[in-house]
Design a binder for these strands. Structure first.
Lengths: 339, 339
DNA sequence: TTGTAAGCGTTATCAG
DNA sequence: CTGATAACGCTTACAA
C-alpha cells in the first residue's frame, strides 16, 4: 500500500504538495506537478478513501436502503439498484447495499451513524413513509426513488403514473374499448400505502374519466388465485368489460387461466395489459402481453445523480417523473363486435 | 457526531479505556465498564467506521463485483446480491455493489486499491475467468459465487450441477421417458465459457448416460425465436424425444409456441422443464412448468459468509455445492403411449 | 486496571 | 509556490 508519503519522498516534495498537486486544490508549479504525477504513476499510488473520508467528511459512498422485499425482489427493484450503482460509479461514487431488517428507522440511524456514507437513496416508498422525516431531521442528504404523498422539496425520481395511465387508457380507447377494468396490487400493499399501488389506482381512474370511458377498479389481487377470482367477480358484476389492466404479474396468470376456463380467448374476447411489468415478463405469456414497462434503471440512475448533485451543493430540488413505456403485445385488439 | 472522546469525558476515563470497554479488547473493571456503556448510550455514540478502518486495516466492507449483465439482470442475480447483503449485514459487514465497466481487471485493481474493501465477492464466473488469478496475486481475499474450471483452494459456493442433472433425469425417467433433450443457454455464453452453460451441459449428458436414457443436447437457444427453431430441428432429427429440459426462459417461450403450432399439448405430447429458473417464472407459463430452481439467495449468503470466515482467518477452504430444487409443475407427465 | 502517546493516510491551515 | 504541522476518530503498544 503506497501512500502520499512515498510519493512525496520519491518526488522530493512535501506531502501536502503532493496532495495539492493530485487534487488540484491549490496551484502547483507545472514542473513539480509533472514530477509528482510521474512519481505517483511509478509507485501505482491510489488515494486511501478511508483516510480521505476521515479528514474531509466525504466518503463518496451512497447507501441504497432497501426494505425487505414484499413479494420477492423483482427485476424492477434490481434495476433500481444496478442503475443507481452505474450512475454512482460514473460520478466517482460507490453504492452500498443496505438491507433494512425489522426496524427501518433504527437501521437508518445505524448506517448513517457510522460516518460511512455521504447520503442515502430510498426506494419502495410508501405515501406516509417516515424515513424521509427521519433523514431530514438527522440532516442526512437523501433522495427517493418513488415519493411520499407530499414530497415537499425533497429530491425524487418516480414513475409518472398520470402519463402512464393516460397512455394505457388511450391505447385501449384507441382500439375502441368503452369500458376498462383495473386490477391493482394486493390489498396488503394498499394498506401499507405503497406508492405505486395508490397512485396507479388514482391515476387510472382519473385517466378513464378524462377519456370518457367507463371504469371499474375495486379489485386487488396479488396472486394467480386472487387474480382468477377477481376476474370472475368482475365479469359477474360488469359483463361489458372488454379491457383489463393488471398490475401484478401473478394475478395476470390467474386472469389468463380464468379467461381460458371460460372458453374465451385473448385478445379476441379480452384485451389484457400488464402494468409496471417488464417486456421480458410480458413475453413469457402467450399471447405476448401488452406491457407498460417502468423505467426502473433510469429511475435508479436519476435518483443517484440527484443525490450526488445535492451532495455537491448544487441548486434547487430535483423532482423527476418518468412515464412507463408502452410495449404493444399480442394481447391488445378491438373489442369483439357486440351483437 | 459524537466521538470516543466525548464518551470518555462524560465517563471520566481515558479514550483508550472507552475503546477497550466497548470492544472488549482488554479487561476493564465492571464498574467502569458500566459507566462507559451508560455514557455511550446517553450520547448515542456510534463508532466511526472510517477511523476504525484506517487504524485497523479492516473496513468491514465487502465488494460484490458484478459484470455487466449478459442478457438483462435476472431475478437470480438479484438474489445473489440480496442474499450476500443480508448475510454480510448479519455478520456486521456491508456490501458494496461494484459494477464492472469495460475492463474487469482494471476495475478490480481500482476498487481494491482504494483500501475501502476487505474482500471481494465474485459472481458470473467463467471457467477461464482471469479475475481469481488477479485477486490471488494481489493478495486480496475473495470468494466466488460459481467457480472456475479448476478452483484449487479458493472458496466458492456454486450450484451442484451434477446433483441437479441427476434429479432432473430421475424425474423424467421416473415418469417413463426414454429419451431426453436439453437446450442450453445461447451460443454466446458457451463461447464465453460461462460456468453454468458448460457445467450444466456436461452434467446433463453424464446423468442421462448413467441413468441409461437416450440424450440429445446439441441445441443452444437464447431467445424465443431460437428456442422455436431449435425445437423444430430437434423433432426433425429425433422424433422420439418426449422430454425436454430448457435453460433459457425465453427459449422455453419459443418451444411452447412451436409445440402449439404443431398441434401438440404439454404435458401430453411433451414433458417440459425449466432449468435454472425460478418458481415465480415457471408459474407464468400455462401450464405451470416444472422448474429446477437455483438456490440463488443461499449461494449469495454462503459466498458472503465464507469470505467473512476467510477474513477472520478461519480454517480450510470452503467449497460448497448446492443443488437446485425441483418444483414440479403441470408440464411433467408420462410420455404418450406409442402405438 | 487505567492512562499516555504514537500512529493510520489524508486534507487543511498556516507560515515561509 | 511550497513545507511544516495539526487535526479527523480510532486502535494499540507501552507506561503507570
Amino acid at each position: 500500500m503506497t501512500s502520499l508519503r512515498d510519493v512525496a519522498e520519491r518526488a522530493q516534495v512535501a506531502v501536502s504538495t503532493v496532495s495539492a498537486a493530485l487534487n488540484g486544490t491549490r496551484p502547483v508549479a507545472a514542473a513539480t506537478k509533472r514530477r509528482i504525477e510521474q512519481a505517483a504513476v511509478d509507485l501505482g499510488y491510489r488515494p486511501n478513501l478511508l483516510a480521505r473520508g476521515l479528514q474531509s467528511k466525504r466518503t463518496k459512498i451512497l447507501a441504497l436502503f432497501y426494505p425487505a422485499p414484499r413479494s420477492g425482489f423483482g427485476v424492477t427493484e434490481m434495476q433500481f439498484a444496478t442503475g443507481a450503482a452505474e450512475a454512482a460509479s460514473e460520478l466517482g461514487y460507490h453504492l452500498l447495499l443496505s438491507p433494512d431488517s425489522a426496524d427501518p428507522i433504527e437501521e437508518l440511524r445505524h448506517i448513517t451513524g457510522l460516518g460511512l456514507v455521504d447520503g442515502v437513496l430510498l426506494m419502495e416508498m410508501r405515501l406516509d413513509d417516515e424515513r424521509p422525516d427521519f433523514l431530514s431531521e438527522a440532516g442526512v442528504p437523501f433522495s427517493m426513488i418513488g415519493r411520499t404523498r407530499d414530497p415537499g422539496t425533497i429530491d425524487y425520481a418516480d414513475i409518472d403514473f398520470a402519463a402512464t395511465a393516460r397512455e394505457a387508457v388511450a391505447h385501449v380507447a384507441g382500439l375502441g374499448h368503452r369500458k376498462l377494468a383495473f386490477f391493482n396490487y394486493s390489498t396488503g400493499t394498499y394498506a401499507a400505502q405503497y406508492g405505486p399501488t395508490i397512485r396507479a389506482g388514482e391515476e387510472f381512474a382519473a385517466a378513464a374519466r378524462e377519456a370518457g370511458i367507463a371504469y371499474v377498479d375495486d379489485h386487488r389481487a396479488g396472486s394467480a388465485e386472487e387474480g382468477g377470482e377477481a376476474f370472475e367477480r368482475l365479469l359477474a358484476a360488469h359483463p361489458d368489460v372488454t379491457a383489463l389492466a393488471v398490475m401484478d404479474d401473478h394475478a395476470a396468470v390467474g386472469v389468463i387461466a380464468a379467461v381460458a376456463r371460460r372458453g374465451w380467448r385473448i385478445p379476441d374476447d379480452l384485451t389484457l395489459m400488464l402494468v409496471l411489468s417488464s417486456e421480458r415478463v410480458a413475453e413469457m405469456f402467450h399471447p405476448r402481453l401488452t406491457a407498460l414497462e417502468p423505467p426502473s434503471a433510469e429511475l435508479g440512475r436519476l435518483g443517484a445523480r440527484m443525490l450526488i448533485d445535492r451532495l455537491r451543493g448544487d441548486g434547487p430540488p430535483q423532482q423527476r417523473l418518468v412515464p412507463c413505456r408502452l410495449v404493444a403485445g399480442d394481447s391488445s385488439a378491438p373489442p369483439r363486435a357486440e351483437v
